[in-house]
Design a binder for these strands. Structure first.
Length: 543
RNA sequence: GCUCCGGUAGCUCAGCUGGAUAGAGCAACGGAUUUCUAAUCCGUAGGUCACAGGUUCGAGUCCUGUCCGGAGUACCA
């Protein structure tokens, strides 16, 4: 419908020799204003120096509208052109939904293209926290949106296992291990205090009781990395997230990629030595100051491997790259991108999605989170308390650029007024109706239903809501903001519940109407299920 | 100081590239169940869209400035 009107208006503009601005077609909030509306006449008013109403008249005069699609149009006050879709159009589209089924909502924007989504990327120094959870769900859902748009998607987890952090982790584990053996060893300065390390230490002690203070730290480091990664992967699995690639920082060193980047930047004269460290002249690239790439200790800062990693991403030839980062990385990625730029590499296909922090509230108090301190809430604990479906929904119901207030007490309490259950109930409710229909001998035979019977107010509203699904997916894709999807599904559920209370679906006195309504519900359920699948939330048939 | 994000109903937040009367959930109050699941629906109340200017037919949305909250500004990641 949207596309149809757009091309129609565009060609008419050309006919008249008017310069086509961005044609805007929107769904008016008020049903009196039609199903679709365009402001094109008002936009043109300035340039043509004519009254918008007159422009609209001239525009519409020679327009040939297919009565099968558009029933009528109106030109109203400031200069809107309102289009009213025909019932035929609605039922045709509904039939299409029922043919497409699990493919309804998909588009082909990314057909034949590859995409990579990097997300989570937490270093294996501790269990995933509630903070990581947001990024996890955000990235996974974005990846699903891309898949629905035809992209061949790689979900990737990049982790840093070569730096100072991991050394500290090894030392921390060693201290814990020795403590278990009765030694008074203290944790290193800035070490990891989390109790999970004690568990890891206990396991190590059980497996290898012979280690001592003389044992090389690397033994402890590797063991810690392996153990903690197992914990992380288990958490990811619990909320249905599976990465295709775990990209290891250490490999960048092994393959000489770190050195290559330094060499390339040096060729551009953007590297210099000062105070024993190696600096990147970011001040020449629009940043307020230069950054250190290699510390005086000889260890690179996170920036350097990040640049090398992104160079690899470019080399791997993805058509689209999405990086999902927390707000604490806001300062790092511009350096990475400008480094790619000066190395002459493609970079405008890289999209960075920054999400704001999750503020955790427990008993009315804000919980400060730090992986190194012991007082953090893990993603696992959250899943234990509220369930994976609720966790997933809550994390993406808000836009990424907004701070997310996660009230733990509320989330735990929530079992009844929860939007997740509201949504799932809509799905289950339809299943229930289908079961009952079957009992009464009514077949859900969508191909034989006379959809033209679906013309009541709330029915049409429900159909319209259903048909909006593909637009929502597209919007998520173009904006890379996935919160539109849960919001939409909530509205669809509302439309369904309203329809349900208003009309009786199973009515043996009106078998034709019943059949048509069952077909409609089939389409609604297909849509709900498709949407929930993208969100990674289960669609129960019974609650 | 500078950079980025946010400030919309009591609370948590939507509001698509500027469009028609600013919405939802929760909380409050009042209703609906001889019925396909009431985990539902309907109604009432609740607003200076932080503030001040500007741009134009039209601003919650764009521009400038101010205030408030958060993040960053590290030889941490």
């Amino acid at each position: 419908m949207q596309a149809y009107l757009e091309t129609l208006i565009k060609s008419r503009l050309e006919q008249l020799g008017w310069k086509a601005p961005h044609i805007q077609l929107s769904r008016p909030k008020n049903a009196d204003n039609g199903d679709w509306a365009s402001n094109v006449a008002m936009i043109l008013a300035r340039e043509l120096k004519k009254a918008p109403l007159q422009i609209a008249e001239e525009l519409m005069e020679g327009m040939e509208l297919d009565p099968h699609i558009v029933e009528k149009y109106e030109i109203v006050k400031p200069g809107f052109i309102n289009f009213f879709q025909s019932t035929n159009y609605l039922t045709d589209e509904l039939e299409r939904v029922l043919e497409l089924r699990e493919d309804f909502g998909k588009n082909t924007i990314g057909k034949g293209k590859t995409a990579q989504v990097e997300f989570v990327s937490a270093n294996p120094t501790g269990p995933l926290t509630v903070g990581h959870g947001r990024q996890t769900v955000l990235g996974d859902t974005l990846a699903s949106i891309l898949t629905s748009s035809g992209y061949d998607v790689t979900r990737e987890y990049y982790f840093n296992n070569a730096g100072r952090q991991m050394r500290l982790l090894g030392e921390s584990l060693k201290a814990r291990y020795l403590q278990l053996k009765g030694s008074q060893t203290v944790l290193p300065d800035g070490g990891y205090e989390g109790l999970y390390l004690l568990d890891v230490a206990q396991k190590l002690l059980d497996e290898q009781p012979e280690l001592s203070a003389n044992t090389d730290v690397s033994i402890f480091k590797d063991y810690a990395e392996k153990s903690i990664f197992a914990i992380i992967k288990n958490s990811l699995e619990r909320i249905g997230v599976v990465h295709d690639v775990f990209y290891n920082e250490r490999s960048l060193y092994k393959d000489g990629k770190i050195e290559e980047v330094l060499g390339l930047l040096r060729d551009k004269d953007l590297i210099y030595e000062k105070d024993g460290a190696t600096w990147f002249k970011t001040s020449e690239l629009g940043v307020d100051q230069d950054r250190v790439l290699v510390k005086s200790s000889g260890e690179p800062t996170y920036r350097l491997p990040d640049i090398a990693y992104h160079r690899e991403k470019v080399a791997r030839g993805f058509d689209m790259v999405v990086d999902v980062f927390g707000a604490d990385h806001i300062d790092a990625y511009p350096d990475v991108l400008s480094a790619l730029k000066v190395m002459g590499l493609k970079h405008d296909h890289i999209h960075v999605v920054i999400h704001q922090f999750v503020t955790l509230v427990r008993s009315g108090e804000v919980v400060k989170m730090s992986t190194r301190k012991a007082n953090f809430v893990t993603l696992d604990e959250l899943i234990d308390e509220v369930g994976a479906d609720v966790v997933r929904y809550f994390y993406i119901m808000r836009s990424a650029s907004s701070h997310l207030n996660f009230d733990l007490d509320l989330a735990k309490r929530q079992t009844e007024e929860n939007p997740v259950f509201y949504l799932q109930y809509a799905h289950a409710r339809i299943s229930s109706i289908f079961r009952r229909a079957k009992e009464r001998g009514l077949k859900v035979d969508t191909s034989r239903a006379d959809l033209a019977l679906l013309d009541e107010e709330f029915t049409v509203a429900l159909i319209n809501e259903t048909l909006a699904f593909p637009e929502v997916i597209e919007r998520c894709l173009t904006t890379l903001e996935v919160h539109h999807l849960p919001n939409y599904l909530f509205e669809l559920a509302t439309a369904l519940h309203k329809f349900y209370t208003e009309y009786k679906v199973i009515d043996l006195d009106q078998p034709d109407v019943s059949k048509a309504r069952l077909a409609l519900l089939d389409a609604v359920q297909v849509t709900l299920r498709n949407g929930l699948r993208i969100l990674g939330i289960t669609a129960p048939d019974q609650m």
